[in-house]
Computed example of a mutant assay.
Amino acid sequence: MTYQGVLTKMQTEIGNPIQYYLVFEDSFLSMNQLLDKEIEINFAGFQCLNCCKKKKIFRQGFCYDCFYSSPAVGDWIMRPELSTAHLGIADRDLEYEQKVQLQPHVVYLAVASEIKVGVTRKTQVPTRWIDQGASQAIAVVEVPNRYLAGITEVALKSHYTDKTNWRKMLQNPTAVFDLIAEKVKIEELIPAEAREYFYAQKNDLFELNYPVLNYPAKVASLNLDKTPSFQGKLIGIKGQYLIFEDGTVFNIRGSEGYVVTIDV
């Protein structure tokens, strides 16, 4: 059976294991049901997620023009400490930025390849952790806006990475970390502006289990620009990656805006 559509990040549902769905405009695929089966992916074009024009994707699913004009990809997305909506100052579109920035945000510690610090909107817990392929995660503070979360993350980045090593994550690292103990150690590292929001007594540890039959010893990333057609047996899904038997991995989120056909 053939499915065709524009790639967007897989939708997820918490479970044991996590359930993954690839959603197109007129259809969807339950990806867990494709484990241990051969699938074929073929590149068929581009469609910007913002303007919907068939223009080459520049970054994050957006064409060049939309990437530099849409408020959905302002610098404060990747660097929340640059948020200014709490001051009434616009970056690209104040109404949009107030809607996104002026809501509860969580700063967290997570384990994917190693302990990392990150920021997400409260409404994106635990989706954000799933998308990063985290095996464990714990909230450190819950603040009322993105700026406070951003300056907290900056302070903690002196002690923890803010990046996930995707290769290690997909090879299922076996190192063990105690996130609750790590959280206890960092209260004094939190900026004074955000310290009142520290989760002193709340130690809810999220543990996440992914649908992976086997983890590869080595991984190689599938790039549709270089390899427009690929066929392989799906053996796992972790983060936003499809993992194939030959060690090929395909980052769905990294290919947002690409139009593909998938034969199953």
Rank of each mutant, 00 (worst) to 15 (best):
Met1Pro: 04
Met1Asn: 07
Tyr3Gln: 09
Tyr3Asp: 07
Gly5Arg: 12
Met10His: 00
Gln11Trp: 00
Pro17Asn: 11
Tyr20Ser: 02
Leu22Ser: 00
Asn32His: 03
Leu34Gly: 07
Glu40Cys: 10
Gln47Asp: 09
Gln47Phe: 01
Lys53Phe: 01
Lys53Glu: 07
Lys54Trp: 05
Ile57His: 01
Arg59Glu: 10
Phe67Gly: 13
Tyr68Arg: 09
Gly74Ala: 12
Ile77Ser: 03
Arg79Gln: 12
Arg79Trp: 08
Ala85His: 04
Ala85Pro: 04
Ala90Pro: 08
Arg92Met: 13
Leu94Cys: 00
Glu95Met: 08
Gln98Pro: 01
Gln98Met: 12
Gln101Thr: 01
Leu102Gly: 05
Gln103Asn: 12
Gln103Gly: 05
Val107Gly: 10
Lys116Arg: 09
Val117Asn: 00
Gln124Tyr: 12
Val125Leu: 12
Trp129Arg: 05
Asp131Asn: 11
Ala137Thr: 08
Glu142Arg: 11
Pro144Ile: 00
Tyr147Cys: 03
Tyr147His: 13
Leu148His: 02
Gly150Tyr: 01
Gly150Ala: 03
Ile151Met: 11
Thr152Val: 03
Lys157Ala: 06
Asp162Gln: 10
Lys163Leu: 04
Arg167Ala: 15
Met169Gly: 09
Leu170Gly: 04
Leu170Glu: 08
Asn172Pro: 05
Ala175Cys: 06
Val176Met: 10
Leu179Asp: 03
Ile180Thr: 14
Val184Cys: 02
Pro191Phe: 08
Arg195Glu: 09
Phe198Ala: 09
Asp204Ile: 15
Glu207Pro: 04
Leu208Tyr: 10
Tyr210Phe: 15
Tyr210Ser: 03
Val212Gln: 07
Ala220Glu: 15
Ala220Thr: 15
Leu224Met: 13
Pro228Lys: 13
Phe230Gln: 13
Gln240Thr: 13
Tyr241Trp: 11
Ile243Lys: 03
Val249Asp: 03
Arg253Glu: 04
Ser255Ile: 01
Glu256Asn: 13
Tyr258Cys: 02
Val260Phe: 02
Val260Trp: 00
